[in-house]
């Protein structure tokens, strides 16, 4: 019973937040609704027993993709009113695309009803009895596919090195704070005691 209730809760919230993502006028609100949609989808995944996918949704989509969206929306100065102004101009193109998608849907359904494509039987790696999703994936990743897994790590490292090599540069005219230099500075380096004669002024 509780499962049914949770399912409908998550499902309704998911559809609602998806709708709000599209319809809210403020793009920041859209991204926040999108995050809510991801959380609800993760909840649905937990319900069907795919807790690994649920975690991926939260970590990758909420943690990385949605935050990236937020950055883009908030840091780039995009004039959304102006973007919307072009709406009417692009309507014919939009309708054309919609027709194409509808045709594809019809073709897809037709092809589905005609019978499935002869795919090969894919031998799956049998998971250990009683292992959870995460354990099964981890066991494969760290034993059978360890070589590829580690090399994928090197790929990410190369991507990081590349990003730094291509963008990090020394700028002229920046004055970074050097704390040790500031602390090491003594009064006698910075000040001078003078006793100027009265009426003569000082030389600087």
């Amino acid at each position: 019973m509780i499962q049914v209730f949770t399912f409908y809760l998550f499902a309704v919230l998911l559809i609602a937040s998806g709708a709000f993502t599209i319809f809210s006028r403020n793009p920041v609100h859209s991204v926040l609704w999108l995050i809510l949609a991801f959380f609800n989808a993760a909840g649905l995944m937990v319900l069907v027993g795919a807790e690994f996918i649920a975690m991926l949704l939260v970590i990758v989509y909420v943690g990385a993709v949605a935050v990236l969206f937020l950055f883009v929306v908030m840091m780039l100065d995009i004039d959304f009113a102006e973007l919307r102004a072009g709406f009417m101009k692009n309507v014919p193109l939009g309708i054309l695309l919609a027709i194409v998608f509808v045709m594809e849907l019809i073709f897809g359904i037709g092809a589905y009803q005609a019978g499935k494509i002869e795919l090969a039987d894919t031998p799956v790696n049998p998971a250990r009895e009683g292992a959870t999703n995460i354990e099964a994936v981890g066991e494969l990743l760290y034993t059978k596919y360890i070589f590829l897994f580690e090399t994928a790590g090197i790929i990410l490292l190369v991507a990081m090195v590349g990003a730094i090599v291509l963008t990090n540069r020394k700028r002229a005219g920046v004055r970074p704070q050097n704390v040790s230099e500031q602390v090491a500075r003594r009064p006698e380096d910075a000040t001078r005691n003078m006793q100027p004669e009265v009426g003569k002024g000082v030389e600087l």
């Binding site: 590829l148 090399t151 994928a152 090195v161």
Partner: peptide
Amino acid sequence: YIGLELNSLAAYV
């Protein structure tokens, strides 16, 4: 694919 990507990514940079 992993080998090819590792090589390509370094090559782009």
